[in-house]
Every structure is written in C-alpha cells, then in structure tokens.
Simulated scan of single mutants.
Amino acid sequence: MIVCHCNTITDHEIRAAVEWMRAADQQTVITPGKIYRALGKRADCGGCLQLFLDTMQSSPSLKVPMQLRGLRRRSTQDKSNEGRYQGY
C-alpha cells in the first residue's frame, strides 16, 4: 500500500527501514525524519503523516529500547531550576 503519494513510499519500505535502523543500532530512536532520510527522500506536504506514524508503530522493531525509556522524564526531574540559567 502506498503511504506517501508525494514520494511514492509504501508501507513495506517504511517497515523495512525501521527493521534496518534497529538492526544497525539497537539504541537508536526512530523518527519519521530518519525514515525519510534512510529512504533518500524528504517530507513534502505532510498529508500522510498520520498514516506514516501508524505504519511505523505497526512494526515490532519500533519499540523504544528498555534502557532509553523514561530518560526525558528523569532528566527534567533532576533540574531544580526548571532548566533556567542560574542568573534567573
């Protein structure tokens, strides 16, 4: 099935890119932008984004590695100054 008509990207190509990225680096965070780059294409109108994301999420390899889960939450909780510079 064609997911992105502007670039003629299929659901098979998206899943294959996710599998390839996960096999290359177990700890990588896979984003739509990285998939476009892996396929040698660029996002155009954005009309396919929801279907693109749904196709990505249907891939079993997309799951965030266990050691990377919760990093954002943890890093923001450690800051007592809410990320502001010390002078503020």
Rank of each mutant, 00 (worst) to 15 (best):
T55S: 08
L68F: 06
R42D: 09
R15A: 14
K41G: 00
D11S: 15
C48E: 03
G40C: 04
T28N: 03
A23S: 13
T55A: 08
S59C: 15
M66H: 11
A17Q: 02
I2N: 11
A23E: 14
A38M: 04
Q77F: 08
G70E: 03
V3N: 00
A16R: 12
L39T: 01
S58C: 06
G70S: 05
P60H: 06
P32D: 04
E13W: 01
P60I: 03
A38D: 03
A16E: 15
Y85K: 12
K41T: 03
E13L: 06
R42T: 11
G83F: 04
L71Y: 06
H12M: 12
G70R: 06
C6P: 01
Q57M: 10
A16L: 11
K34Y: 03
G47R: 04
G47M: 07
L68N: 15
S61I: 00
L62M: 13
L39Y: 02
W20S: 13
L53R: 14
K41D: 02
V3E: 00
S80H: 10
L71D: 06
Q50T: 13
R84T: 08
V3I: 15
C48H: 06
A23P: 00
N81Q: 13
R69N: 04
A17M: 04
K34Q: 11
T31R: 11
L62H: 03
T76I: 15
Y36R: 02
K41R: 15
I9L: 02
R69S: 05
I35S: 01
G83K: 06
A17T: 02
A23N: 15
K63W: 04
R73P: 00
M56A: 04
T31A: 04
V3C: 03
S58P: 01
R42Q: 13
D25L: 05
Q86M: 09
K63N: 08
C48S: 10
R84K: 13
E19Q: 13
D54G: 07
G33W: 09
I35E: 00
M56Q: 01
T28Q: 11
D78K: 15
G87Q: 13
G83N: 09
S61N: 10
I9D: 00
A43V: 08
R74N: 08
C4E: 01
R74E: 12
H12R: 14
R74K: 11
R15P: 00
W20E: 13
S75M: 12
Q77V: 06
G47W: 00
T55P: 01
D44K: 13
R37F: 07
G87H: 15
T10F: 02
N7L: 06
G70K: 02
T10W: 02
I30L: 07
N7E: 15
A16M: 10
M66P: 08
L49I: 08
L51E: 11
F52K: 01
C45D: 12
T8C: 06
T31L: 11
A24L: 09
V64Q: 13
P32H: 05
Q86W: 10
I30D: 01
A43I: 09
Y85F: 14
L53K: 15
Q57H: 10
